[in-house]
Structure formats: C-alpha cells, structure tokens
Nucleic acid binder design. Structure first.
Lengths: 342, 342
DNA sequence: CGGCGTTATCGAAGCGCTTCGATTGCTTAG
DNA sequence: CTAAGCAATCGAAGCGCTTCGATAACGCCG
C-alpha cells in the first residue's frame, strides 16, 4: 500500500504539498497538482483512514443505532439504516452499525474512542434511555424520532400531526363526514415510539374541530377484519378510513373490506398516514402520507454533518412535512340516504 | 479526553507500561497494574481508536455489505447484518455498513484505506460481482452464501441440500409417499442467490432416489393458493409439502389449505426448509429447518476473525447443518384409499 | 564476589497523515 | 534599486498509540 510519502517522492514534491493538493485546503499550482494526481493513480494511493483520523481528529464515520424491539418492523429499520448510510456517503461519511443490546455501550464507546464523529439514533421511544446518554456524550447526536423530553436534543421526524390533518382534510374535501382511524396494537402504543399516540390525539382533536364523526380502533392482531368491524359498529355511516397501523394490518384491509361488500374507493376512501412503506412485491394500494426514510434520514444526516463541521448550531426538533402519494383510494363520499346525512 | 500520557503520568509509570498493562502483551506487576487501572478509571480513559489503528495497523472494524435487491426481504437482511454485528462485538470488532449502490466501491474503499480489517458479504448471488472483487482485495473477505464459482473464496452457508434431505426423510419416515415443493417466484430464481435452485435440484434428486412421487411449483404471487392448487392438480395424493419460498407465501399457506378443507397435520404435513424466519408477531406454524442468521453469521465472523488474527488459513466453503425446529406440523400420512396407495 | 539469567519497566522510534509557520522566488510599487 | 507583497512550496511538529530493544534491579550459582 502506497503512502503519501511515496506519492510525494514520485511527484517530486513535499508531503505537505500532496496533502494540500488532495484536500484543497491550500492552493497548489495546476502543474503540480497534475503531477500529484498522476502519481496517486500510478501508485493506486488511498490515504489511510486511521492516520487521517488521528491527525485531523475526525474519523469521517457516523454511528447508527439499529434498535430492534420485539415488535418493531425490522424491514423498516433496515430501510432507515440504509438511508442513513446512503445519505452519509453523500457527505463522505461511513456508518458504523450499533446493535440494540449494545446501543448504550456502543454509543459510549464510539464517542469515547472517537471511533465515530457523531451518532444517529433510530427508532426513538417516548422514554428513551439514549436521550439522557446523548446529553452527556461528547459528540453530536441526532435522533430520528422524538422522545418525550427533547430538552437539549436534536431530533428529526415526520410531522405526524400534519399528516393526520392532511388526511382528514383530503377526506373532508371529498365530502366524507364520518371517518375511522385504525391505530396500532395496544402494546405497541405503550412500548414504542410516541408517534402513534400523537397521531391518535391529533386525529381526535382535528376531527372534532372539523365537526365530523370519528372513532379510533386498536387492532389486536395482524388481521384488519375485527378492527374494521369495530369501526363499522361504532360508526355505521363511516365512509373514510385513516390508517396508522402495522403493515400486515393495512395489507389485509382491502380483503376485509371486500368481504363486507365494500369497495375502495367507491364505498370507502382510505388513506395511510405516517406509515413506513415496506419494500414488498405488493405495495399498499392506498393513498399514502408515508413516513419515508428517504425523507427524514437525509435531513437528519445533513443536520448532523452541519453540526460536525461547525456549520450550524444545534437545531432542536425538525419536523419534515409528509408528501401525499396518490393511489386513487380517495373518492367523493358516496351519496348517503337523507336519514344518515346530517 | 484523557490520553495514555495522562494515565501514565497519573500512575507514575512510562507510557509503554500503560500500553502493556492494558493489552496484556507483556507482564506487568500486580501493583503497577492496579495503579494504572485506577488511573484509567479516575481519568475515564479510553484509547483513541484511530491512534491505536495507526500504530497497530488494524482497525478492529469489519465491513458488512448489506445489499438490497428489489425482491429480497429487507427484514431478513437486517437480521443478518445485526447478527454479524453481534458476533463481531463478541470479538471486539465493530461493523461498518456498506450499502448496495456502493458495495463494490465500498469494499474497495474499506480495504484501500484500511478502514476495515475484513469484509463480510451478505446475500450472495450466483454470479456475484463481489466475488471477483474479493479475489483482488488485500483484506480477507468471507461470503455468507455461495456463488457459482467459489475458487479462492471463503464462504459460509446453510447446508440447503441437507435441509431438503432432512425434510424428505422426516416426511418419508412418517409414511408420506407424495410430496410437493413450493419454491420461489420464478424471477427470484433467476436473480437472487443460487440456493433456491440448489434446493429444487436436490429435492428432485432425493425424492426420486427415495422412490416417492413429487412435484415442484413456483408461485407467481404472494398468495399460496394457486401454488397449492397447482401441486394438488399434479399430485392428487399429495400428503406432504416442503416450503422453500417467500415468507408471505408461507404465511398464507395455512389459510389456503383450510379453504380446501385440509388441516395441518391431519391431512397434510408441512415443513419449511431453508427459509429465514421473519421476526413477526405471528411466526410460521410449521416445522422448520431455518436458514437462521444466528447459525451462519457467527460462523462466518469466527472464520473471518481467525483469518485476521492469523489463527487459521482460508477454509473454502463451510456448510452449516440446519437444526430441526418442531412445531407439530408433521404427522403420519393419512391412511390412503387402497386405490391411491401404491 | 563477579557474572548471569530473570523480571519489570523505560525510552524512543515509528505508524501516515494534517497543519502551522517559514522560506523561496517573483512581481510591483515607491 | 530596494522594500513590500503575494503565490507556491517546504519542513517539522505533532496526533496518541504500539512495540522493540535497552536498562535497571534483583536473586542465584559457582
């Protein structure tokens, strides 16, 4: 493996000139630069990461905690970890994978040994231990997700409240006056991130303020049928459904509706809000306001990199506005019988 | 951040003594060691990764390529990446995540800059470009999965052939004489790893050598029903099913069987062979010979670490024997009508 | 009591890079 | 014609660690 020394000799210049030519931190004449570049190619030179890190006091590595609660969807996490990695590469950073068992220790270690310059925390729970840790750590930390207490933290997340409002707006504009929300498994609501709760609250608040009928159900299994029945029982005139639930539940909704003689969007309009699309052969057949890793991850990485390079001060909580993806699952509300119409 | 210098001063010894005390590479008196350890704790000392890597010429990092074909299951990959990470931590290595776009470049970069000491390649395709690259690279590479040409490579994989033989043996021993295989989506067969093909071949070969009736079907969708019908049409007396297919297909099999009045294991015995269990709320209700990341990943990491530490020479292909997990989905073959019995 | 092998510790030379200040060789103003 | 200014380059001092050979202190044998 060639070193900077070899390159310098080959190009007939000093080591420091090579360094400056490659980093661009000082001006180097075109002629010299050309000779240096030629030498690099000829010798197949690549600067040694450890030497660079030691001298420059930055490793160009970002650590990513890849949590895995028993009930979070691993495919979604993979997607996030990958998007973080892709975004990091755009800034010439690599990513270190920290597993959950080791998340706290791993964060400490990466910071203490300067293995990583900064940390991205995924799948943030409402009362996340990593929040307290982040406050103590010597390196910048950015959360993708928002814990309960954001004091002193930097967080990025989808604007779930906006997603819910957009969903309801879309349905109301299409004339729907009775809308149900299929939320998460009750356990998930307890244990996981706090967005499902935020979603439920905003749904209830905003539906009320719009003056429409509404109900929320919490499916117990991966099958949407019981949840649907629950909603229909409480909301007989329901013509709109908002989904913020586990992917399997959503996947099975179309079948459940069909089994009850209901067609999307003729009889019922459906919008999935704040769900992460799994990369399956069969995507959700509904209009979506996705919690898309491609939206939040690059923002989080940008913020972290700005922090690392001193380009910007810490920014508190950044909410990313969701983007409406139409699949034709929303249509004007069916004309109700005069009795049901309010 | 404290340096080894601070520790040495605090403990009243030379830097090298601290280094030896911490690495254990030379003997240090109990007394001195105690003072050094106390100083480390007092100063909250952690050796700087980059300095250590530069001096020792090893980074204690393993790179993992985490590819993501459109039709591979991301949750499975996450599981593999995580298991590699966990196994690596057991040897005090960290893992760097390389994404697919960047897999080739990333492998080159990690090797050239000595960012990583070694590389683990996941989701190996039959004709994987990374194979050729691995042969050129200066650092050890271990594949989890087996490409067509293994010349000069180190690979670890499940022994799929053994899994298939064990499945057939289990069914034959229970008296089944007519067994179907539900394989993969035809496209997957082309594009992905080569194990699905190996599975089909071994199934046909071994079923034949056992003298039983058999058939193979390739489901076009995520629904098992058409595949099941196909098998039943070609194998009217079928009492056993072997699964080596996508998880959604397997998940829907029980329902498809039920819809045709068939109960597991009363009417049909089912074994899933060489499938990666997804960590869903509802696991597969079948006997399984899983391609379990917890089986292959630690083996791959062990081999890589041995290679890195010069403890063992390259080992070619290592096949890991699957472990039978019973779920009660195999029972004696139903008594057939004399006509059907051969 | 001198020489020798042990054992525990020290000192110093790197590892390959970044970066600061100094130097060189010009050009231009005074 | 000299001082000043500028651009391009060089030299050397680290960054914090590992590791090799040297050294010192000690007991042991002859």
């Amino acid at each position: 493996m060639a070193t900077i020394d070899d390159v310098a000799r080959q190009a007939g210049v000093a080591i420091s000139t090579v360094s400056y030519a490659l980093s661009g931190k000082r001006k180097v004449s075109a002629d010299t630069r050309a000779r240096i570049e030629a030498a690099c190619v000829a010798l197949d030179y690549a600067p040694r990461a450890s030497a660079r890190a030691l001298a420059a006091n930055r490793s160009e590595v970002i650590a990513v905690t890849a949590p895995l609660h028993p009930d979070t969807d691993p495919s979604a996490h993979m997607a996030f970890a990958m998007e973080v990695t892709i975004a990091a590469r755009d800034h010439d950073y690599d990513t270190l994978l920290l597993v959950h068992d080791d998340a706290q220790q791993g964060m400490r270690r990466s910071a203490a040994t300067a293995l990583a310059d900064g940390i991205i925390v995924l799948d943030v729970a409402a009362h996340d231990e990593r929040a307290a840790l982040a406050r103590k750590l010597s390196c910048p930390v950015v959360f993708i997700g928002v814990p309960e207490d954001t004091e002193g933290l930097v967080c990025v997340d989808l604007d779930f409240e906006a997603a819910i409002r957009q969903s309801i707006d879309a349905l109301v504009e299409a004339g729907h006056r009775s809308v149900g929300l299929i939320s998460q498994h009750p356990e998930t609501l307890e244990r996981e991130s706090n967005y499902p709760l935020r979603v439920v609250h905003e749904f209830e608040r905003y539906a009320q303020s719009c003056g429409i009928d509404f109900a929320v159900t919490y499916p117990e299994t991966d099958d949407a049928a019981p949840a649907l029945d629950d909603l229909l029982a409480r909301l007989p005139g329901m013509t709109g459904v908002v989904l913020n639930t586990a992917n399997p539940v959503a996947q099975s909704l179309a079948a459940a509706l069909g089994a009850r003689g209901l067609t999307v969007p003729r009889d019922v309009s459906v919008i999935a809000a704040g769900m992460t699309p799994i990369m399956a052969r069969t995507p959700l057949p509904f209009d979506t306001l996705p919690l898309d890793p491609r939206l939040t991850c690059p923002v989080a990485v940008d913020i972290l990199v700005d922090l690392l390079e001193g380009k910007a001060p810490a920014r508190g909580v950044t909410l990313v506005t969701p983007i409406y993806q139409s699949q034709g699952s929303v249509a004007p509300a069916p004309v109700a019988s005069p009795l049901q119409a309010r």
